[in-house]
Simulated assay, not measured.
Amino acid sequence: MQQWDSSARFCDPAAFVVDIEVTIALMADYQIRKATERGEFDDLPGSGEPLELSDHYDPDWWFKSLVKREKLALLPLSVELRREDAQLEVALDRLLDEQAVRHEVEGFNQRVIRARYEPPEGPPLLTMPRDVDATVAAWASRRAERIQKAKSEARERAEQAQREVRPSWFRRWFTRG
C-alpha cells in the first residue's frame, strides 16, 4: 500500500471518466457565463417579452388545448356553485313541468351539500341549498305571469290586426257610390 505524500496531488485527472456530453455542456456553460459578464446578451431583440414555447413537451398539452379551443373556464367549485345559483332561476324558467324543476333543484342541492364536505379549493362556499317547495312555487308563479303576459300580448296583436284589416272588395264596391 502506498503512503500519501503531502506534496502529492489528491486527485489525478486521469482517474476520472468524463463523458463527452458533460464536457461540452460544461464548456458551453462557461462560455455563456463569460459572455454574460461581458454584457453581450444585453439589449437583445425580444428582451423581457414572454417566450412562445410549443406545448410539445407539456404532459397536459391536450387538456390545455381543449380548454383554449372550447373556451372553457375552470373555476373553483365554490365560485362555480355561486354562478350556478345566480343563473338557476333562468335555467328553471326554460323547463316545462314541475317534475323537471324539482329534479333540477334537488340536483343543485346535492352538488352544494357534496361541496360542503370536500376540502375548500378556493374562496369559501357561501351558497346554501335551496328549499325545493319554495323554489317550485316561485317557478309556478313566474310561469303563470309569463303565460298571462303572453295571452294579453296575443290579444293585443289580434285586436291590432282587426283594426288594420281593410274592408273586403264587396264593401269597397258598394261604398263607392
Rank of each mutant, 00 (worst) to 15 (best):
V79N: 08
T175L: 06
P76H: 10
L53F: 00
F170Y: 10
A137Q: 14
D12T: 02
A91H: 07
Q162V: 02
Q87C: 04
F174V: 10
I147H: 03
Y117I: 03
A115Y: 06
E70R: 12
E164D: 09
R102C: 09
E89F: 00
V101H: 00
E98M: 07
D93C: 07
T127N: 06
S54D: 15
E156C: 07
P124D: 15
K71C: 10
Q162I: 05
R116K: 14
W139L: 11
R102F: 04
P119C: 03
Q31T: 12
Q31P: 07
A25V: 12
P124F: 09
D131S: 11
R33W: 12
E49I: 00
K149A: 15
L26W: 10
E118K: 06
R38F: 11
A15T: 02
A73Y: 09
E37H: 11
S141Y: 08
F174C: 04
Q162L: 08
D42N: 12
E52T: 02
A154C: 06
W169E: 09
G39Y: 06
R130C: 08
F108P: 02
E104Y: 00
E89V: 03
A154M: 08
L88F: 01
A15R: 07
V101A: 00
D5M: 06
A150G: 06
L126C: 09
P119G: 10
L125I: 01
R33D: 15
L72W: 09
P124T: 13
D19A: 13
S141H: 08
